[in-house]
């Protein structure tokens, strides 16, 4: 790992101005991706701005029909939260399926979402539940947030402070994990908002997206058998040593079917 300057601001405003003044800075949240990346010298920021010292960025709030998670909140806090389990159990389930226990004790929701790893779990929830990603200056709709491989709507220096999830009538998440890394080869989250279905997919494409074809079919007929005839086009899907694009497209359908069965039986 190359040398870097280290900063630990106590407010979002201070973090922003540190970012502005530095040469080639990066924000550090849980560090579960950034630190391994720096160790491999694939990232070499001149300045690390550690967001762990900003108290208002950690915490869970359930009120006004929403579940709000502070950006610095680690995955296990969400997975084990009685409030989240009671109000939005699918989010606790998604959090509990990320990586391994040690990673879940350090990794944060803001870090995961800002990184836009194509195989991360949380993005499926942001897209599938139609969450709002809140930064220090604006609110970005979950539908518009993920742009491409490791690319988001965030501008340089912008900081996610919290993520607000609306509470659906019911929802379920299923993923096909890579057996070694536990990253999602494909993960599908289905949410039912009073009869309107949303489907968020991670792992399959360069970033998380809504599967509008599946949504259309399920809005007409909320039945796993209805998915048999659905064509999931694999154009632009990821193809690597873990799975071909064609196989990922197949998995989208299989995971959607299983998630829907869970949703209906839940």
């Amino acid at each position: 790992m190359y040398q870097f300057n280290y900063h630990k601001p106590e407010s979002v405003g201070e973090a922003r101005s540190l970012f502005q003044d530095a040469d080639d800075p990066m924000y550090l949240s849980g560090g579960m991706t950034l630190i391994p990346t720096m160790k491999q010298r694939l990232a070499a920021p001149t300045d690390l701005i550690d967001l762990s010292g900003i108290p208002e960025m950690t915490g869970i709030d359930v009120s006004g029909g929403k579940v709000t998670i502070g950006a610095f909140t680690p995955h296990n806090l969400v997975a084990d939260s009685a409030q989240v389990r009671g109000t939005l159990p699918v989010l606790a389930e998604v959090a509990g399926l990320i990586g391994d226990n040690q990673v879940r004790n350090r990794g944060t929701i803001g870090g995961s979402v800002a990184n836009s790893d194509p195989a991360a779990d949380y993005p499926a929830a942001v897209v599938g539940l139609g969450a709002d990603v809140v930064t220090e200056s604006r609110t970005i709709s979950g539908d518009d947030f993920f742009k491409d491989l490791f690319e988001t709507e965030l501008k340089p220096g912008e900081i996610i402070t919290k993520i607000e999830f609306p509470v659906p009538t019911r929802a379920a998440y299923r993923k096909f994990p890579n057996p070694a890394s536990r990253y999602a080869v494909v993960g599908v989250l289905i949410a039912d908002f009073d009869g309107t279905i949303r489907v968020g997919v991670t792992g399959a494409g360069p970033c998380a997206f809504r599967a509008s074809g599946i949504e259309e079919v399920l809005n007409d007929n909320l039945d796993p058998a209805a998915l048999d005839g659905v064509e999931v086009p694999d154009a632009g899907f990821n193809s690597d040593l873990h799975a071909s694009a064609e196989y990922r497209a197949h998995l989208v359908k299989v995971m959607a079917k299983r998630a829907l069965e869970d949703l209906l039986n839940g």
């Binding site: 560090g31 630190i35 690390l48 550690d50 762990s52 296990n76 040690q102 004790n105 350090r106």
Partner: peptide, 13 residues
């Protein structure tokens, strides 16, 4: 009291 991986924490943290 919670398990973490010590190879993925830097000194200032």
């Amino acid at each position: 009291g919670r398990a973490i991986k010590a190879c993925t924490v830097i000194a200032p943290q």
